[in-house]
Amino acid sequence: MKQSGSVPSSENLPIYYDLYLPDMVESSSSLPLILFLHGFKGFKDWGAFPDACEALSSAGFAVLAINFSLNGVGQSMTNFDELDLFARETLSQDLDDVGAVIEALGKNDIEPPEPFSLRTDAMGIIGHSRGGHTAVAAAAEYPEIQCLVTWSAVADYNARWSNQMIEDWEKEGVTEIVNGRTGQIMPVKKVVYEDALDHADRLIAVKRVQELQIPALFIHSKDDEAVPAEEARKLFNHCPSDQKELQLMPDSGHTFDTSHPFEEKDFPPVFRQVLTYTRKWFQRFLQ
Rank of each mutant, 00 (worst) to 15 (best):
D121Y: 07
E114Y: 11
E114D: 14
A139T: 14
P115C: 13
K107P: 13
N108Q: 15
R130E: 03
D109Q: 14
W151L: 03
P115Q: 06
H133P: 08
V154F: 00
T120Y: 04
I110H: 05
H128W: 13
V149W: 00
R119G: 08
L118M: 07
T134N: 12
L118Q: 00
T120D: 02
Y142N: 12
H128F: 12
T134P: 04
G131L: 06
G124C: 05
L148Q: 02
A104S: 15
L148H: 05
L118A: 01
S129H: 09
A135N: 00
H133M: 09
K107T: 15
A153Q: 11
D109K: 13
D156I: 01
K107V: 12
G106V: 10
I145H: 03
A140H: 05
E144R: 15
I110N: 01
F116H: 08
A138E: 04
E103I: 04
S117K: 12
G106R: 10
N108C: 08
Y142K: 11
E141T: 14
M123K: 05
I145K: 07
E114P: 06
G124N: 02
P115S: 14
E103A: 15
G106N: 15
Y142P: 08
P112H: 09
E111P: 01
I110W: 09
I126M: 02
L105H: 05
G127D: 01
G106Q: 13
D109L: 13
A140I: 06
A135M: 02
A122M: 03
I125S: 03
P143D: 13
I126C: 01
E111W: 13
A153G: 11
G131A: 03
M123P: 01
P115F: 10
A153P: 07
I126E: 00
I126F: 00
D109P: 05
G127M: 08
E144V: 06
L105Y: 09
T134E: 10
D121E: 15
W151A: 04
D109V: 00
A140G: 15
S152F: 07
F116N: 10
I145Y: 05
V154H: 01
I145W: 08
Q146C: 11
A137I: 04
V149T: 09
D109T: 05
A122Y: 06
A137Y: 02
E111F: 13
A139Q: 07
L148K: 06
D121N: 14
E114A: 15
S117P: 01
A140P: 08
T150P: 03
R130N: 07
E103V: 08
T150Y: 07
V136N: 01
S129Y: 12
A122R: 14
M123G: 04
I125M: 11
L118Y: 02
C147Y: 00
S129D: 09
A153M: 06
G124Y: 01
N108R: 12
T150W: 04
T134S: 13
A104K: 07
G127I: 06
P113M: 14
P143R: 13
G131T: 06
Y142S: 09
G127K: 00
